[in-house]
Design a protein around this nucleic acid. Structure first.
Length: 802
RNA sequence: GCCGGUGUGGCGGAAUUGGUAGACGCGAUGGAUUCAAAAUCCAUUUCUCGCAAGGGAGUGGGGGUUCGAUCCCCUCCACCGGUACCA
């Protein structure tokens, strides 16, 4: 009888759907396990074989945990707002809802054909008004807490897409989608004060079971630095320039001050004779995109504006420049330049022939700035009680801050790179922001009026003003109270809290029930791509921290354990892409080899977190393995009986239970597959098979190959594996009676001996002495030392007999 | 530049975290079965010297610690990812 994967797989998939086999249990007294995938954006292209890698891993883990008796929450949904459907609408006039629906249908079909055990009764869709009602509700909670505000911000305007892009959507000065040019344009925007939560977000990382690399990425993104503000008086004026520095110890080395071209004091401090030059420079800087200003153009430019600042530590008069290497968006938008100990200031000083003063020992200022933080301070004392000479940098920083504070010249400050989150998009296909503008007043709409539904429009192009298409619908736009907000939310919004809705997806009176939230949160295992290491994971953590502070959720952090699956490359080792023509379509794979082979192969390829190329030959190997199992159970020459397992079989069985259980717990699926192969290879050599052993084997195989294992299991006359218990191993059956012990002389492998397990060193030593191949190594030698590791190794350290 | 990661046979990858390097799979070679093929089964397969018995080398390179290093330390190299004038 042939292994017909198509028939078997559709049979069991139908069975699972009809019987709701994987429906989450209502029983909140059982121990729980929340296993979550990063839900996909349902694109028109459908899945390629890379997508289901993480889904397969979580499916195996979920099935494993269910068999272990956990109440498992394993849901799937759709992050369906987003630009592609909107662009398609602009091009073809097709409503994004239609596109989205059909894409979801295709995604769902593909996901279901792989036999994943999602609880489909909890499926959610971020574009569903029953869902985004609560996204809007959360927005209002954040607004009421004072975390949402309006601001006129220069944004990334893409004339081609007629849309404002977020920084992360701009790559190398061009739109990430389509590669169109992007320019700066100021526009009214909604912002979130995520910076208020910088410290909280940083702190929360420490205890998370996340890859260190992802935590580091977030730490770098938040970019905490410690330093102080220093006030520089301006010669002949009463105003001050406040700079931010992390190196107040180098104040005596400050030889000029630089303002960002956008700095508010520039106009006031520019002397008349410098006006033209300065204005030209400012104009030039403003037309440059961020990209030109930073990435490509590391050549320093700048203009002396004519005024002088006074160095507070030594009253030196130092020139004030403007230069675009100083960013208005960081610190105070102005710096004290210490060319001796900062690379950028050094370059600038060299170019414009400004003085370079050495204040930390250890470098060669002829060649480069010395930026090291180990060294003694020199040339740094004044008559006002500050003497840093011969003090180490670290201590000098502390001492100078204390001095500045005591003199009222500066104060300690912590600075973050993290900026407030631009939370509005001038687009149609997103959640409307539930706000009305009433005579310059911002009025949040009443919670009882939610959801604020996305209205139908005729045209999907943004309005003439660059506002979203919503600005064109006057009957929607104008209310008795005033004009509606036309901005919509960015795609991140829906994914910021979807894991909370999965807990209670049908609740119509609240976003989630407190009781259920308390039971299910946090997410025990969250699997997805590294590309979300910062944005999605930072934004959703931010919302969650706020919800926690509002008492709406019971845990501060939403995701206890995070795991990033690797990428699957094409057979050529390159990234899978249409243009390279190396895309493998899961539909074809499943049709030819079946979902079980597909799942098994994706897990067998290598460690889950690593990137690795797809090899059809490798897939065929897994297919062969499954067919071997199928044949094992259909081989007429083999007898299947009760109580006939031999010692060897039981030993390998229990080794396999142990290995697979431990590997599953650690998400090491590739080695679990190997172990199942080893066990299968052993079973194939037997003529008589034990029913119980076979049944246990099928339970172990089930998470990888659920269809095949259920089918064979049913043929053996057993109840469905989904109702079984995960086996436990018996260590006494694993321990061998004899051991192979490695024999080394001076650390070199020379052979092995077989002795009873747990033998004493004396026995091992005598066995080696008696071994005809090994005893010769003792000739003419003296044993100095013997290292003996029980059941593993004996090493003789020898010396020539003199 | 900075941060992070990786480097093991022809290939994907194992190795209980300091104790027999190369499990398992792919590929390859030889054989069985077949009219033939597919499928299946058996054997070999790190490199190298040797007919063999046996040697020697070997986990990116170099050095170190140790009886013993893929694993720990130092240093260099290559590739991948992130980030970038953040004061």
């Amino acid at each position: 009888m042939e292994y017909n994967h198509l028939k078997i797989e559709s049979k069991w998939q139908r069975y699972w759907l009809e019987n709701k086999t994987f429906k989450t249990k209502k029983d909140l007294s059982k121990k729980k396990c929340y296993v979550l995938d990063m839900f996909p954006y349902p694109s028109g292209a459908g899945l390629h074989v890379g997508h289901p890698l993480g889904y397969t891993a979580t499916d195996i883990y979920s099935r494993f945990k269910r068999l272990q008796g956990f109440n498992v929450l394993h849901p799937m949904g759709w992050d369906a707002f987003g630009l592609p459907a909107e662009q398609y609408a602009i091009k073809t006039g097709t409503h994004p809802k239609i596109t989205t629906e059909s894409n979801i249908k295709n995604f769902k079909r593909q996901i279901q054909m792989l036999g994943f055990s999602y609880d489909w009764d909890r499926e959610i869709n971020t574009t569903d008004e029953k869902y985004y009602k609560w996204t809007q509700w959360i927005f209002l909670q954040l607004y009421k807490k004072g975390l949402a505000y309006e601001s006129e911000v220069p944004v990334n305007w893409c004339p081609e897409l007629k849309a404002v892009l977020a920084n992360e959507e701009v790559v190398d000065g061009k739109s990430e989608i389509g590669g169109h040019p992007v320019v700066r344009k100021p526009m009214r925007q909604w912002m979130f004060r995520i910076t208020d939560y910088a410290e909280s977000l940083l702190d929360g990382l420490d205890d998370l079971d996340w890859p260190e690399s992802v935590k580091d990425l977030q730490r770098n993104w938040i970019g905490k630095s410690k330093g102080c503000e220093v006030d520089f008086k301006i010669k002949g004026l009463s105003s001050n320039i406040t700079v931010y520095t992390t190196r107040p110890d180098t104040l005596f080395g400050a030889s000029y001050v630089v303002l960002s071209p956008e700095h508010p004091l520039v106009e006031k401090l520019t002397l008349d004779e410098k006006k033209v030059e300065v204005e030209n420079y400012i104009k030039l800087a403003s037309t440059k995109s961020d990209f030109d200003r930073g990435e490509l153009n590391k050549d320093k430019t700048g203009v002396f504006i004519g005024s002088y600042a006074i160095n507070p530590v030594n009253n030196a008069e130092i020139p004030i420049w403007i230069a675009d290497y100083v960013l208005m968006s960081y610190g105070t938008g102005s710096i004290m330049a210490v060319p001796g100990h900062d690379d950028r200031d050094f370059d600038f000083a060299k170019k414009f022939e400004l003085p370079i003063i050495e204040v930390v020992e250890g470098g060669n200022l002829e060649k480069a700035a010395f930026t090291g933080k180990k060294g003694k301070i020199i040339n740094s004392s004044n008559e006002d009680g500050l003497d840093l000479n011969q003090i180490e940098v670290k201590e000098a920083i502390e001492k100078s801050i204390l001095w500045l504070e005591s003199k009222g010249l500066g104060k300690r400050r912590i600075q973050y790179k993290l900026k407030d989150w631009l939370f509005s998009r001038q687009r149609y296909w997103g959640e409307p922001i539930p706000i009305i503008h009433s005579n310059d007043q911002i009025v949040p709409i009443d919670e009882s009026e939610l959801p604020l539904k996305l209205p139908e429009v005729d045209k999907y192009e943004p309005s003439e003003t660059g506002e979203s298409p919503l600005a064109n619908i006057s009957e929607w736009l104008n209310t008795e109270q005033g004009r509606r907000e036309t901005n919509t939310m960015p795609q991140w919004a829906g994914s910021c809290w979807y894991f909370l809705r999965f807990i209670d997806p049908l609740n119509t009176t609240e976003a989630w029930s407190k009781e259920k939230e308390n039971y299910w949160m946090p997410v025990d295992l969250y699997v997805g791509g590294v590309e979300h290491a910062v944005l999605h994971l930072l934004y959703s953590r931010f919302w969650h921290h706020v919800l926690y502070d509002l008492g709406l959720v019971s845990t501060k952090e939403p995701f206890k354990k995070l795991f990033n699956q690797g990428m699957i490359q094409g057979e050529d080792g390159q990234k899978m892409s249409k243009s390279r023509g190396n895309v493998i379509n899961p539909d074809d794979v499943v049709k030819e080899y079946g979902a079980d082979s597909f799942r098994l192969y994706e897990m067998f390829m290598g460690p889950l977190e690593k990137s690795k190329p797809w090899k059809t030959k490798g897939l065929q190997g897994c297919y062969r393995f499954l067919r071997k199992i199928w044949r094992l159970f259909h081989d007429k020459t083999k007898n299947i009986k009760y109580n006939c397992a031999n010692k060897e079989t039981l030993k390998i069985l229990h080794q396999t239970i142990k290995k697979v259980t431990e590997d599953f717990d650690n998400l090491r699926f590739n080695t679990a597959v190997s172990q199942l192969m080893i066990f299968t290879n052993h079973l194939v050599t037997l003529n008589t098979l034990d029913r119980e052993v076979l049944h246990t084997f099928l339970v172990l195989l089930n998470p990888f190959a659920p269809h095949l294992s259920e089918e064979i299991n049913a043929k053996l006359g057993n109840d469905t594996i989904a109702s079984m218990k995960w086996p436990k191993y018996d260590n006494s059956l694993i321990i061998a009676t004899t051991s192979t012990v490695a024999v080394q002389f001076n650390g070199k492998m020379r052979g092995t001996i077989e002795i009873a397990s747990n033998s004493e060193q004396k026995i091992a030593r005598e066995t080696v002495m008696a071994d005809k191949n090994l005893k010769k190594f003792f000739e003419g030698m003296e044993v100095i030392k013997v290292i003996y590791i029980n059941d593993k190794l004996i090493n003789f350290v020898l010396k020539q007999l003199s």
